[in-house]
Design a protein around this nucleic acid. Sequence first.
DNA 1: TGCTCTTGATAGTCTGTGCCTATCAGGACG
DNA 2: CGTCCTGATAGGCACAGACTATCAAGAGCA
Lengths: 301, 301
Amino acid sequence: MNLRDLRYLLAVAEHGHFGRAAEACGVSQPTLSVQIRKLEGQLGVALFERGGKTVAPTSACERLIGHVRAAVAEADAILAVAGSLRDPLAGRIRLGVIPTLAPYLLPLVFAPLRDALPHLEVEPWEDQTAALLDRLRGHELDAALLATDVDGPDLASQPLFAEPFLAALPPEHPLARKAMVAEAELARDILVLADGHCLRDQALAACGRSEALGGTLRAVSISTLLNMVAAGYGTTLIPALAAGAAEDAGIVLRPLAARVGRTVRIAWRAHFPRRAAIEAVGEVIAARLRGFAQGAAKGAV
Amino acid sequence: MNLRDLRYLLAVAEHGHFGRAAEACGVSQPTLSVQIRKLEGQLGVALFERGGKTVAPTSACERLIGHVRAAVAEADAILAVAGSLRDPLAGRIRLGVIPTLAPYLLPLVFAPLRDALPHLEVEPWEDQTAALLDRLRGHELDAALLATDVDGPDLASQPLFAEPFLAALPPEHPLARKAMVAEAELARDILVLADGHCLRDQALAACGRSEALGGTLRAVSISTLLNMVAAGYGTTLIPALAAGAAEDAGIVLRPLAARVGRTVRIAWRAHFPRRAAIEAVGEVIAARLRGFAQGAAKGAV
DNA sequence: TGCTCTTGATAGTCTGTGCCTATCAGGACG
DNA sequence: CGTCCTGATAGGCACAGACTATCAAGAGCA
């Protein structure tokens, strides 16, 4: 049994006439005669009573035709839905974003994404790098915005923009009097995020330490860190997109002598079939942040 | 797009593995790979993301799969319903019966029909011959029990049993003293049914008249006729199956000298596809009435 | 009654497609 | 680094579905 046969059956039932049904189906009349007869053979029931001039559906046909209509309607629905899904720049993209990026980047790119890709529904998911990669590999996410390289042949990625780090100092800190801070100078009293944040490792590496300061601080967000710095507990190192939040907290920001920073990139499964959507999202974000590396050093976003 | 392809799609989605899905479908793995890929091409969307070891449905696939399941389920329903309709001795037969036969025959054959053809639902419809033939030709009935020959190449029929006529007389009627009545003797004061009843014409023909007695009587049933006879308004001629009703009304019945009668037959459209059901019904009725022609003359049914 | 028109069925043929086996390619794992 | 697993690809075969041409059966009409 075949969907085509079911359409033929519907056509004959509707027209009550093989010739006109064949015309409606765009095939020849013998084709319809043969296929309907074959269908009757497969089903084991007569579907039509062929009289001299009339073709009338049998009661068996009437019992079946509701299901036939339903099957054909579902098949049409499949085609219709597939048609609406055909646009690679439409649909939903589940996008993971690391916590040190999400609160500062997403407000910047939401409107551009909506404008440039109106049919793409970007659904953000905030978590740490390792969790995002797990979800990405587990098909729970389609892409992720990370600040680290990704490895493994199952994933691919593309850099979007460079984000410098800035020294964040309490106003009364001695280093706040300098126009520029050397990374190593922060090592003495730097505060870093909790385990699992890529920014923690990057900040420690930047100032030449391999271990965090002893202590119980387990800051889970840059926001917490900034409050600690503002209260004079120490210094820290923040990504440039968080500059606005830092200044709002009354913190002094200084560029770093070696201009260290991180590269934000978008990652996806190598076999993900809607790569075009990923690349479009990445391009919109990159365009929004273009020239950011230069401007950020001067505090402009 | 093909129902087979949809089943393949469901199998791959369910197993997440082309090889095992192919085994479940009873085809080779390359067949599935090719057909799924072809389906993706037809739909214009990727359905599965093939990773190194994993096959995961895309979001498009998840959007479509409900319709796919529905289409396949409807197709299965078609097969299941067709299977249940396959028995030619099952289903519904709309059976027309003429009014001079229905009230006397149906009570006799209902139980035998139910016993012999338990899956066949015989739905009686009572009307005069011409109306029954119209409905039969118009596919509103599947068969009809008539007492006349049918003509035309579009209809076929088969005799079931012979039903003699009996003279029905008021007890005080002069003819009631005779053991047997010659048909012509009834002509003087015979009462007949209204226009359209085949029995009217047959009764008139039997006693050699071509016109009914003048008058306003338009009896629409044998029952009315019997009441008229019982009241002494005249004589009539009834089919043997109505003998019981006549005797209940206190009417004297006499066999006819020339043994005229009618033949009850079943008629159907020549192209009606469930001829087996018709013939089975006819055979049950004929069997029930077998030997009736002889017995009826003696008043036994 | 016989002619013609309509309509579905049948025959013969061709092409496309679905299936197979054999083999390749890429990634995982010891 | 070789081996296994898994999906993709290639080549060949067979059948199904489509076409054209034609037949057969009824209906309508002269």
